[in-house]
């Protein structure tokens, strides 16, 4: 989306049909994710940590549809994450006992906000677009801080907890392990939707916008509309992740709406490799683990996270996936 020359060359067609090797890797990934509650405690981790990795991976993959595949640099996606979280939290606290309904409502609120605000943001491109998305995001932050009686203000929203899911014939209790599987299902559905979109004609338009906006305009494609569509879809996915995040902690705070979170989601995309479909998953894995570990050993964890930002941007702009891919080619 920028007119400046980019010195890094990216693959023009990032999504080939899965070759044998890729299918093999995918099966390994699926097995690893399905068996997390078995092997993670053996390595000294805890299952909630894995849930958090998947939640942030889902959010970052949603953001990456806009960032990595459409070329829209949004610094405000925390807003939709937080709206999803608040929507779900407020539903459970005040209106319903159905966890699934609360998740659906939270996702709708965040996604619809992105659908409505995207068209405003896409009036400008490039750096301007980023500044507008940051500012829109901060608006929701201040609303959440100021609207004390409804949102709990700066202290955050408490007083809700995830409720057992009642299905005809059986009940899912949503303790740590079963909640992990709920997150995994949402992650699988979310990434399947994103994968399907990216391999559809719509997805090809997104990538084409990233590669050459001017040419698409000449071809008579309304670039604004498509970026807004990408913005909206990514908003829905991010909001889903946000509502799961509220359920994970049984808590949400204005921090989930703040631009700091937007920055974290962006660095997750960059860390993993934003031109790779599974990059954000790798990035979320690295980022959540580093954050969890560092904050347990030093008070100056912010400096370490800041260094992660600076160093990865300077030395690994293609992220882990891009780095390994380049390695294996040369």
């Amino acid at each position: 989306m920028s007119s400046q020359a980019t010195e890094i060359k990216h693959d023009a067609a990032p999504l080939q049909k899965p070759a044998f090797q890729q299918r093999y890797a995918f099966i390994c990934l699926a097995v690893a994710l399905l068996t997390v509650p078995v092997w993670l405690p053996l390595l000294g981790g805890y299952t909630d940590l894995a849930s958090r990795v998947l939640i942030f991976a889902l959010a970052a993959m949603g953001l990456n549809l806009l960032l990595g595949f459409t070329g829209g640099l949004s610094f405000g996606h925390a807003a939709y994450f937080g709206l999803g979280a608040y929507g779900t939290g407020l539903m459970l606290a005040n209106y319903t006992h159905s966890t699934l309904l609360a998740v659906a409502v939270g996702t709708m609120i965040g996604g619809l906000a992105a659908t409505l605000l995207g068209p405003i943001a896409v009036r400008r491109r490039g750096i301007y677009f980023s500044m507008i998305t940051i500012a829109i995001g901060q608006m929701f932050y201040f609303i959440a801080v100021r609207w004390n009686s409804f949102t709990g203000g700066e202290d955050g929203l408490t007083g809700f907890s995830r409720q057992p899911i009642h299905m005809p014939g059986f009940t899912i209790s949503l303790h740590t392990t079963s909640f992990y599987y709920l997150v995994l299902v949402c992650f699988a559905v979310g990434s399947w939707i994103l994968w399907t979109i990216l391999n559809s004609p719509l997805g090809h338009v997104f990538v084409a916008i990233r590669e050459n906006q001017k040419r698409l305009t000449f071809l008579g494609i309304r670039v604004d509309v498509y970026i807004a569509v990408s913005f909206a879809i990514s908003g829905f996915v991010v909001a889903l992740a946000g509502s799961l995040d509220a359920l994970l902690d049984n808590f949400t705070s204005p921090d989930n709406l703040k631009y700091t979170l937007s920055g974290n989601l962006l660095i997750i995309c960059v860390l993993g490799g934003m031109r790779n479909f599974w990059g954000p998953l790798v990035g979320a894995f690295i980022f959540v683990l580093v954050q969890d570990y560092i904050s347990s050993i030093t008070q100056n964890w912010m400096t370490v996270i800041g260094l992660v930002f600076v160093l990865s941007v300077i030395f690994f702009p293609l992220g882990a996936m891009g780095f390994f891919r380049r390695r294996s080619r040369s």
Partner: peptide, 12 residues
């Protein structure tokens, strides 16, 4: 480079 990188670097 893309503005993304300077944005993230200054954010860090």
């Amino acid at each position: 480079r893309d503005p993304l990188y300077s944005l993230l670097a200054t954010f860090g």
